[in-house]
Design a binder for these strands. Structure first.
Lengths: 159, 159
DNA sequence: TATTGTTATACTCTATAACTATA
DNA sequence: TATAGTTATAGAGTATAACAATA
């Protein structure tokens, strides 16, 4: 009657997610963890975490921005951003210059080294994206990206 | 020429996300944070975090499961799950009984109080889902849920 | 040897509060 | 008074390693 085999198979069987299957947050969280783990693994040679990478990209796209503006755009608390930038400044990748028009603000720029480091990081990030695309399938990834942008717009526009 | 107004508007303008717009992980992370914040806010009366809630749901759907099985299903490290369950056991919501067939395992069950607490929590979680649906739009939410489940299956099936 | 569960440690991220200096 | 930036602290989540008990 294959009882032993059946028992073993049962032991390996996936558990029922139950009511969790109805929760968007559960699937979003699992996907986010998977993506970040792979990103962190791929970017490990640059010792760059996702938040640090996102800050570099925003400074690149918006040179001279204040810490407050970067923090608002990325949803990073100013206290945390201050320490994060301190680290990037120590690596000589980011420069904080005092803003002439507002003595409280720092204007942020990438240094030459920062530009080079970001270029290397982008190549690793592209490998990460390629691997995720391979796992998810190109159509699935594209559809997800589209939907998530829409969701982001709807969640942030009223604010 | 409206120069002052233009300057003010520019100061309030959203920054360019730059290359970040190409990264699935960025949008997934932002959505996950938004959803979890609302969940935590709504479930605050139960002092229940997302991970704790997911564990309760899995025990409900799979009574008698071991900690190892629950941890594998949810991707929670056994070390963390041990402390998480210790807390739920202290509240008298979860019971850990020794498994007769395997002396190493604990079989997990909801207590009567646990069942009641979970029922109350589900009502709050439903309010959270309703609010998120309101923000995202029902069609967007349904499409997202569908896509995220597909993504989850593709990411977990090879493992 | 491998697995289950526990304890402990360290690091990241998040959330506050308190403080300064500027506006 | 409000904002920009800094520092400090505490809590949650994650990743390890080490250990005892059991398989």
């Amino acid at each position: 009657m294959y009882e032993p085999a059946t028992t073993e198979a049962f032991a390996e069987e996936r558990l029922d997610l139950g009511h969790l299957k109805q929760h968007l947050g559960y699937f979003v969280r699992r996907l986010q963890i998977t993506i970040f783990k792979d990103f962190i693994r791929e970017l490990a040679p640059m010792r760059l975490r996702p938040a640090q990478y996102s800050v570099l990209l925003l400074i690149e796209a918006n040179p001279g921005s204040s810490q407050a503006a970067i923090g608002r755009a990325l949803g990073i608390e100013r206290a945390r951003l201050a320490r994060l930038l301190h680290d990037l400044e120590e690596r000589l990748w980011v420069e904080r210059r005092s803003d002439s028009s507002d003595g409280r603000s720092h204007a942020l720029f990438l240094s030459r080294e920062g530009v080079k480091a970001l270029a290397r990081s982008k190549k690793l990030a592209a490998r990460h994206e390629a691997y995720m695309t391979e796992l998810l399938g190109g159509e699935c990834r594209t559809a997800l990206l589209q939907l998530l942008r829409t969701a982001g717009n709807r969640l942030n526009s009223p604010a």
